[in-house]
């Protein structure tokens, strides 16, 4: 069982960010396999996520466009996930069929 699978809750694909960085192995697995996905219907575009991103990704814009944070700079550091006042950002395993135009080496 991989670290990612072990951290998975019953709702397949969703990871509990509090446990994510417990070990380097888990971190490595996350960096390789997960991205931040939004639940756009819960978003009010308040900007807290973008404000806290250490590499200045406009996370809010991704949410408005209802797309995962595909930005190659994303560290999967979980700052946006943790800070979102409405809890609408989550880590999700990157699906096998990647979004068009996304280079797996960039994740």
């Amino acid at each position: 069982m991989t670290a990612t699978a072990r951290l998975t809750r019953s709702d397949a694909g969703t990871l509990n960010h509090m446990d994510l960085f417990k070990t380097d192995r888990a971190k490595h697995a996350t960096l390789a396999r997960a991205w931040v996905v939004p639940e756009p219907s819960r978003c009010v575009q308040c900007g807290v996520c973008s404000f806290h991103c250490p590499v200045r990704i406009d996370v809010r814009r991704h949410v408005w466009l209802a797309e995962p944070v595909t930005d190659s700079k994303c560290l999967t550091c979980a700052e946006c996930v943790r800070r979102c006042p409405r809890g609408l950002l989550r880590f999700q395993r990157i699906p096998a069929a990647m979004a068009p135009g996304t280079d797996p080496r960039d994740i």
């Binding site: 009010v44 575009q45 308040c46 807290v48 404000f51 814009r61 408005w64 006042p85």
Partner: peptide, 21 residues
């Protein structure tokens, strides 16, 4: 701007300039 975000502005969680999507 984000009207609901004003609550987070008031609670010092986000600066004013970030409320404009």
């Amino acid at each position: 701007y984000s009207r609901p975000g004003l609550a987070y502005y008031l609670a010092k969680e986000v600066p004013e300039g970030r409320l404009f999507p």
